[in-house]
Design a protein around this nucleic acid. Sequence first.
RNA 1: CUGGAUGUGGCGCAGUUGGUAGCGCACCUGGUUAGGGACCAGGAGGUCGAAGGUUCAAGUCCUUUCAUCCAGACCA
Length: 492
Amino acid sequence: MADQITKRSENYSQWYSDLVVKADLAEQSSVRGCMVIKPYGYAIWEKMQRTLDDMFKATGVQNAYFPLFIPKSFFSKEAEHVAGFAKECAVVTHHRLMNDPGGKGVVVDPEAKLEEELIVRPTSETIIWSTYKNWIKSWRDLPILCNQWANVVRWEMRTRLFLRTAEFLWQEGHTAHATAQEAMEETERMVNVYADFARNYMAIPVIVGHKSPNERFAGALDTMTIEAMMQDGKALQAGTSHFLGQNFAKSFDVKFANKEGQLEYVWATSWGVSTRLMGALVMAHGDDNGLVLPPALAPIQVVMVPIYKTDEERSAIIAKMEEFKKALEAKGHSVKIDDRDTLRPGFKFAEWELKGVPVRMAMGPRDLAAGTVEVARRDNMTKTTVPLEGLEHSVEDLLADIQKGIYEKALAFRASNVEKCDDWEEFKAKIGTGKFLLCHWDGTAETEQKIKDETKATIRCIPVDSFVCEEEGKDIYSGKPSKQRVVFAIAY
RNA sequence: CUGGAUGUGGCGCAGUUGGUAGCGCACCUGGUUAGGGACCAGGAGGUCGAAGGUUCAAGUCCUUUCAUCCAGACCA
């Protein structure tokens, strides 16, 4: 482990990949474009899952599960949807293998060709709406608020651990409502759940807003998003919530009888976040010593490292630690004692820092004698020696302080990299330097596209909470009138 | 798919004008160590991505092919 994480400034994406691998989160699979999530990485994901799941359920959402395979005919019913995903679908064409007649392993049995090909879901709107058709008859059946935790497959051309893999884990919520207003409220409710989660658990400040028509989900009337700034100043779309209007209801012929007995099409939403959030966590907080995990999501909040020479010292210190661990666990903290006998303390310090554990406590013979423990914070790398007596009562405050500290650091970083910009030359000069630029936009897709072609920058969102700036102005590119500023950035 | 690069022990790399493969880390054994990534001694591990060709001789030269990475297009 002597080799350090590459400096972020030199090559950010290399730094990111190294960190993901060295912190033991995940690795590239030998399967094309896929990743293996390792136990430590998965533990973080599980914690995210549990937290989100509770948040969803608090809004009345229930979990369900729908098939992995989608018949091709379902998929092609919604025209925009199919156009958006057609280029990246894995397709099942056969259902059997056979021994190669030439004796070389196995081959696909040509006799076993499927009558209708099956698409491995890139998202589940189509299979779910073909199912909802059977569930919905009356206004009394609405709303339906379902979420599924699942894997999906998108055959992306270029992949990157967590950020864009051919297979990824996510949750997708799919809701059905009687009115447009209800559906729009649901869309907003869920994007706000994501924003709360990002801010309060991931400690990542995000901008909530609407996507421009160009950047919308395929088949949506409106897409809301949370946009986060990574440490290289690029934007990461961390979660989306879509108002699907009646598009899917019409494509799948899902109608309900309203209170007046008339048939109406159902209004829909869908919303999702994925293992990409893991990438966001790494890129938002990591430093050159490794990962920095917010206590709210850290699988291990406190790691204890014993320091000793003799077996007697070892057992005495570990006994003391076990006792203290119980006290901390009683307070709801997750604690690990690193009692590996073959590694030296300095090695363990470095390793747990690499893994981003928020608090490290070290105890040696000196501490044992004095009744103290060395407490080190991962977020600001400070160390203090404090009395062990009663310490369990202040760990909660310490973790809360670290959680807050990490958020505020990220917030300060973003604040220093968001600017208003009203001059096109200035825009071109600054956009590549890792800035979010708040600019006037005339609202046309043409202008947006031209800006993208010239600078690679896209409209990340039209903000609705942070950085809202509704004022008259002129489009940065076309000079046409504009009513509000939008967020431009280079995105992942 | 378009550009650029790289394939040599588990990982990271070196290998000169072709001469029969080496280093660091990791690993195994023993010992000394232990408050910030230990040290010493010994040891194990590779038909050099694959196929073909040139040659007395190929990691090195030629041809073909496969894979991976980076930058684009696409995207949660």
